[in-house]
Each structure stands twice: as structure tokens, then as C-alpha cells.
Simulated scan of single mutants.
Amino acid sequence: MTALPQPRTEQPAEATAPAATVAERARTDRRSLALMLLLTILGAAVVLLAAGRTWARGSVAFQSTTIHVGVSGSETSGLPGALALVGLAAAVAVFAVRGAARRAVGVLLALAGSGVVASALLAATGTAALDGRAARAVGLTQAAAADVSHSAWPWIAAVGGVLLLLAGLLVVARGRDWPGMSSRYEAPGAGATGKRHAAPGPETPADLWKAMDRGEDPTT
């Protein structure tokens, strides 16, 4: 007796792909995601640290006394610190969105990094904040600080901004392959409510007896 040939079942492309290739792709995605988080956290930490340090120093003459003044990064410009916080929030939002929305979050993160770089470099040579501090020190509305010197902290803040910029570009380039939030973060009871409406059970004692007569399990 000749055995009948078994019908050939076509396997989907994903099933025929080598398991090693799929595993390697998953590892690459995890590495790029971890790199984005590292760049964002490190960049924001550098910017926030630099914002609390002295960016410029000078002096102002008052009668026969010379008063030394200085301004921190946050006093010079509040923009770098605020943009660093925006970058951290954007990195968290990456896990909550997908597709075009995730790409938009990456663009926002890159723009935040660019804003940090621009504002830090402008503050690295500016004297407006230091002049304002000098005027307040002598009780005048306007004064010009003398012997002005700038520290390296604005440049360090700019480096942090570059890290945020790179993190944003990484989201734009690779974010589409990263995982998002699990379905367990959906609204509580949504799935259970849908199931109850899809298959309602007996509601009266008579319905229970009728279900038992038909051989059905009334408890399902």
C-alpha cells in the first residue's frame, strides 16, 4: 500500500529565519536601548552638576573697597538645567510610545541637547549675569564687573548637552526596534470587563437549571 504524500505546509518567513540571527538582533536592540539610557542619564547629570558650579568671577570697586563676585550656571542661565530635565522626561516617554510618536520624542531629546550646548557656549563668554551681580553688590542699577574670568564648567555643561543630543539621535535611528510598555500597564479591569460582556453567564436560578439540563457548566 502506497503512503499518500503529506501536504507541504509553508512556514512563515520569521519561522524559517535562523534563531541565532533573531537572538543577535534582540541583543543589538537591547544594547542600543541601554546606550540611549546611559547617554541621557550621564548627560543630564553632567549638565545639572555643572549648573550648580561657578561659571564666571569678577570684581567691582565700591568707594575704596574691591568686592569679588561670582555667578553659578543656574544664575547665568536657567536653560541648561531645565533642558536636562526635559531630556530625562523624554527618555522615560520613549517606553510609553511607539512609531512616529517615539521618533518625535527622540527629536525632542535631540533638541534639548542642542539647546544645552548653545546656551552653555553663550554663557561661556557672556558677562551679563556677572554685571548684574556686581550691580547688586554695590547697590546700583548698573555696574560692569572687572577682571572677569570664566571657568571650564560651561564647556563641561556643553559636553553633557552633546550626550543628550546623541541620545536623541539614537532614538530616531533605532527606537523603532525597541520594546515598549507591557500590556499589563493597561487600565485595570479593562480585559475582564470585555470578557464579561462577551460571554455573559446565567443571571437567574431558572437559567442555572436550564443550563444544567443542557449539560452545560453554569459556573463558566
Results as ranks from 00 to 15, higher is better:
residue 93 A to L: 09
residue 81 G to L: 07
residue 120 A to N: 06
residue 147 D to Y: 14
residue 86 V to P: 03
residue 202 P to G: 05
residue 108 L to Y: 07
residue 152 A to P: 08
residue 197 H to G: 11
residue 105 V to H: 04
residue 151 S to Y: 05
residue 127 T to A: 15
residue 175 G to P: 12
residue 201 G to I: 04
residue 86 V to G: 01
residue 99 G to I: 08
residue 165 L to T: 14
residue 200 P to K: 13
residue 197 H to L: 14
residue 135 A to G: 10
residue 182 S to V: 09
residue 126 G to P: 08
residue 197 H to P: 10
residue 147 D to P: 12
residue 188 P to W: 03
residue 101 A to R: 08
residue 178 W to Q: 01
residue 186 E to W: 02
residue 112 A to N: 00
residue 189 G to P: 02
residue 139 G to S: 00
residue 158 A to R: 07
residue 155 W to H: 12
residue 179 P to M: 04
residue 141 T to F: 04
residue 96 A to R: 06
residue 115 G to K: 00
residue 126 G to A: 15
residue 90 A to E: 00
residue 175 G to Y: 11
residue 108 L to D: 09
residue 162 V to W: 03
residue 142 Q to M: 11
residue 155 W to Q: 11
residue 94 V to K: 00
residue 182 S to P: 07
residue 201 G to K: 05
residue 92 V to F: 03
residue 155 W to R: 13
residue 97 V to H: 04
residue 106 G to Y: 05
residue 168 G to K: 09
residue 135 A to M: 06
residue 149 S to C: 15
residue 96 A to H: 02
residue 100 A to G: 07
residue 139 G to W: 00
residue 186 E to Q: 06
residue 109 L to W: 05
residue 183 S to P: 09
residue 133 R to L: 11
residue 197 H to Y: 09
residue 94 V to T: 00
residue 110 A to G: 07
residue 160 G to A: 13
residue 198 A to N: 09
residue 202 P to F: 02
residue 126 G to H: 06
residue 180 G to K: 01
residue 181 M to A: 07
residue 156 I to K: 05
residue 153 W to D: 14
residue 126 G to K: 08
residue 158 A to Q: 02
residue 96 A to Y: 02
residue 82 A to P: 12
residue 166 L to I: 14
residue 107 V to M: 05
residue 117 V to K: 01
residue 202 P to C: 02
residue 113 G to S: 04
residue 130 L to D: 03
residue 148 V to F: 08
residue 121 L to K: 05
residue 155 W to I: 11
residue 123 A to D: 00
residue 148 V to R: 09
residue 106 G to R: 08
residue 146 A to S: 15
residue 96 A to S: 01
residue 90 A to P: 05
residue 160 G to V: 12
residue 138 V to N: 00
residue 200 P to F: 01
residue 100 A to L: 12
residue 155 W to K: 11
residue 123 A to S: 06
residue 150 H to P: 12
residue 100 A to C: 05
residue 110 A to F: 01
residue 82 A to C: 14
residue 123 A to G: 04
residue 121 L to Q: 06
residue 174 R to K: 12
residue 104 A to G: 09
residue 85 L to P: 03
residue 117 V to S: 05
residue 170 L to C: 15
residue 124 A to W: 13
residue 153 W to S: 15
residue 108 L to Q: 13
residue 84 A to Y: 02
residue 151 S to L: 08
residue 147 D to H: 11
residue 173 A to Y: 08
residue 95 F to S: 07
residue 108 L to W: 10
residue 177 D to H: 11
residue 137 A to G: 01
residue 135 A to R: 01
residue 189 G to K: 06
residue 129 A to C: 13
residue 134 A to V: 01
residue 137 A to I: 01
residue 103 R to Q: 05
residue 194 G to V: 08
residue 122 L to H: 10
residue 134 A to I: 01
residue 135 A to T: 04
residue 100 A to H: 04
residue 133 R to D: 07
residue 169 L to S: 12
residue 103 R to S: 06
residue 133 R to N: 12
residue 181 M to K: 07
residue 178 W to V: 06
residue 144 A to Y: 09
residue 99 G to F: 06
residue 126 G to M: 10
residue 138 V to A: 02
residue 111 L to H: 03
residue 161 G to F: 02
residue 153 W to Q: 14
residue 133 R to T: 10
residue 157 A to Q: 09
residue 91 A to E: 00
residue 95 F to R: 07
residue 183 S to W: 08
residue 191 G to E: 14
residue 113 G to V: 01
residue 123 A to Q: 05
residue 167 A to C: 14
residue 126 G to I: 13
residue 165 L to G: 15
residue 161 G to S: 07
residue 148 V to E: 06
residue 134 A to Q: 00
residue 145 A to C: 13
residue 110 A to H: 00
residue 129 A to M: 08
